[in-house]
Design a protein around this nucleic acid. Structure first.
Lengths: 141, 141
DNA sequence: GTTGGTGCAAAGGATTTGCAACTTG
DNA sequence: CAAGTTGCAAATCCTTTGCACCAAC
């Protein structure tokens, strides 16, 4: 599976081990394609016959977020797998308030504009977190 | 107090009652000037000799967020009082990762740019949530 | 064989709910 | 007075910690 290949690369490059639980959590995230909680992931995996302790899932998600492999969506309180490369600057997310589907993107010009605004206010910006709420193409009548 | 005047206006306009607990929570938020948890607020009020149940504080904060009188800062997990008017579009926040100080602003051009980007991806954007992490002017060496 | 990861148990917070009692308009 | 709010009790859920055991390199 392509997803797993990417995981292996990133984990190894950062000195982490490629374990069964980590592979399974990433598969679940990829399958969900919308924000899911640690317990959601546990249930998904149970249905496939594999069990992971919830603490383990928490720790794996923390690691994934650290490596930019996943993101915690604060608007809905769940985790999603990042589709952009782990190192491509700041990721932004649009969440459909109707169906919950999520779309990820990055925009360099937006980052620069935000940096300028912040600088004018005396701030040195390091990271930009942004999420948009609205309607996806399917949910617009 | 000026803050309280603004609260009264907004609450009345939306059909909510102006109660003692709501005034006290707003005062505490105004006093804090940085993200605080519901229990932080409870402690602050205790020191002034007034007690509020934590459930009450949760409900009041929910209401304030709904009315854009307050905002939940997801970067640090606390609530802040909004300094911008309740109806002035989307509020953005910069949090200093060193001292925790928070600065709020709004930028119409940024909103429009984000709307365009979203539209190109098929999304109709209704609200923009964004928080920047970095260093405030005091914490930059 | 080491080191890092996972499972388990348990604790501690955070958040929510239903209902009775109290305030506000 | 009537409707909206608050307090209380309690339940539930979320998240973290320490330590023993296990798997990856």
């Amino acid at each position: 599976m392509l997803e797993i290949q990417g995981l292996i690369q990133v984990l190894k490059a950062e000195g982490y081990r490629v374990t069964q639980p980590r592979k399974r959590v990433l598969e679940a995230l990829a399958l969900a394609q919308r924000p899911v909680s640690p317990y959601d992931i546990q249930k998904m995996l149970l249905q496939e016959g594999s069990y992971l302790n919830h603490v383990t899932i928490y720790r794996i998600l923390d690691l994934f977020c650290l490596l930019n492999l996943a993101h915690r969506v604060s608007l809905v309180g769940g985790f999603v797998k990042c589709t952009l490369g782990a190192k491509e600057g700041c990721h932004r997310f649009m969440v459909c308030r109707q169906c919950g589907v999520l779309r990820e993107f990055a925009d360099k010009a937006l980052c620069e504009e935000e940096n300028e605004i912040a600088q004018d206010l005396g701030f040195h910006t390091e990271r930009h977190f942004s999420e948009f709420s609205g309607l996806c193409s399917n949910c617009q009548v």
